[in-house]
Design a protein around this nucleic acid. Sequence first.
DNA 1: CCTATCATGTAATCCGTTACATGATTAT
DNA 2: ATAATCATGTAACGGATTACATGATAGG
Lengths: 169, 169
Amino acid sequence: MQEEIRLTPVSYIVLGLLSWAGEATPYDLKRLVASSVGNFWSLQHAQLYTEPERLTRAGLLTETREEGGRRRKRYRVTDAGRAALRAWLAEPTGELTELRDPGLLKLFFGADPAALARVQLESHRAKLAEYEELQRSPRLQELAGPRLALEAGIGHQREWIRFWERFEE
Amino acid sequence: MQEEIRLTPVSYIVLGLLSWAGEATPYDLKRLVASSVGNFWSLQHAQLYTEPERLTRAGLLTETREEGGRRRKRYRVTDAGRAALRAWLAEPTGELTELRDPGLLKLFFGADPAALARVQLESHRAKLAEYEELQRSPRLQELAGPRLALEAGIGHQREWIRFWERFEE
DNA sequence: CCTATCATGTAATCCGTTACATGATTAT
DNA sequence: ATAATCATGTAACGGATTACATGATAGG
């Protein structure tokens, strides 16, 4: 009775986090996302309710519902789910993201660079500070993947700051 | 008879390109996008049929349909459309994009850095070369916005290359 | 002439966002 | 107690992607 679904990045985020956590409710997932991958790929909390449902229908997760109290839904990865995650990880991707930066779009169409730079710099500097703070967490240092992802994030924030600083008076 | 619609980045891309071009069919827009803003914010061609319709319903564009032949639809920006574009440009945004990079997502969840680096580097180097080629176009040099956007793109490609080069053997 | 590609458009699907809603906890 | 916030969930909507389809043009 397995339904065919297309696996999106969101699917793999859920699969990945669940395979770390072993078991989690959507709310657990929400917190997990916020403290980890959400720093460069954030999700609406509602997606953390619908996406596990989809994955369950495809046989990649199991769902158990608490009987008493809040009747929370708890999810676990199945063998098929683990296999799907492993296959995804094993296949390197050459795909690139686009910048899709709202500030850059305005610049493109002729907005005033100096005015933009002022607010953009403020945002990027705040984000950079946040990342650097995260980097001090000793827990993160042990996790190779997240640590490297964070370093990428920091590199890009610095690049943005270099870019916009040219327009400061 | 004006309908309320929410203006998205895609809306401003259409408004912006149309205000440059004066008049265009969806297909014209497709080519315009491909040769300009599409380098960092690409669109499905179908969106260039539906989005002008939405903007027309909101009174920001006018639509005229050819009588004979292909019965193409041609769009122009109205005064209200120009005002909307101007207002958007005048308001600097502090909003940031997330990286949302597929390769980084795999790295985060434990994919092999060296294997990823190989294909990612190939893609990023190709993209960088493409951008540097674009930069040689004299026409671009005169257009401040696009030129700056391209410089941002180049900076980020270089940043990605620096990042992934660490994992090369 | 035929085939492939370009040009043009519509329809259906689906994911992601937004809005809505209510049950628990904590703080004042 | 009561308000505020946290926790948990569902429903509706809309934009973006995908699929489908056909007419024109150019190349062989």
